[in-house]
């Protein structure tokens, strides 16, 4: 099926994902409504004719990747999604990807990341709540030991253990069944590596 240029522009216009085309100096040549909608909170007095001040504010990391890879064609930063907060008060987030389509022509993809960030936040809160539940029981167990009540302490330790096991069960179920390989034993002091988008 032949697709005309106007069909492509129509797609570009209606695409729910933000798209911004710029030249090498980040002067905007095309921008769709989704990009204007998502970037509006960081524009201030800028008119979006120049993406440079927006990137400086939003994602210096992406900007330095662009500078570093000034001649590379294809995805910038190995296609990494750069997450940026557009308004801390409203908790609005975007993800940015950049692709050098051809020399002197860049395409920026702007994704609405509110939902993903909200899910991450909820996961963290849930993990904290479970951790708190475990700690409360263990602290009560310590107190019971200190008071010379080992039976009571043992009950409380069991309760902490049950809360921990329930949490691990939930997590394994979400990871797709009893995927024991998902769990890696590590030293408590060892930091968990930050997840990096492929």
């Amino acid at each position: 099926m032949a697709v005309s240029y106007s069909d492509l522009l129509q797609f570009f216009y209606q695409c729910p994902v933000g798209l911004v085309e710029t030249d090498e100096a980040a002067h905007v040549t095309l921008v769709n409504p989704a990009a204007a909608r998502l970037l509006a909170p960081v524009l201030g007095n800028d008119d979006l004719s120049d993406l440079l001040p927006v990137l400086e504010r939003l994602s210096p990391e992406l900007l330095s990747a662009l500078t570093r890879e000034r001649t590379a064609l294809g995805p910038i930063g190995a296609g990494r999604r750069f997450t940026a907060c557009t308004n801390a008060e409203q908790a609005t987030w975007v993800e940015l990807l950049a692709v050098r389509v051809e020399p002197g022509r860049l395409m920026f993809v702007v994704l609405d990341a509110d939902r993903e960030q909200e899910l991450v936040r909820r996961e963290r809160v849930r993990a904290l709540e479970v951790n708190d539940q475990i700690v409360q029981s263990l602290v009560a167990a310590e107190t019971a030991f200190g008071l010379g009540r080992p039976d009571r302490a043992a009950e409380l330790v069991s309760s902490a253990s049950a809360a921990g096991r329930r949490w691990i069960g939930e997590q394994l179920a979400q990871a797709g069944g009893a995927a024991a390989g998902v769990v890696r034993r590590r030293d408590a002091a060892e930091p968990v590596a930050e997840a990096v988008e492929p």
Binding site: Q136, S137, V139, A140, T143, A144, L147, R149, R152, L156
Partner: peptide, 8 residues
């Protein structure tokens, strides 16, 4: 925590 109140 009821446990903690009891222990306290």
């Amino acid at each position: 925590s009821e446990d903690m109140r009891e222990l306290l």
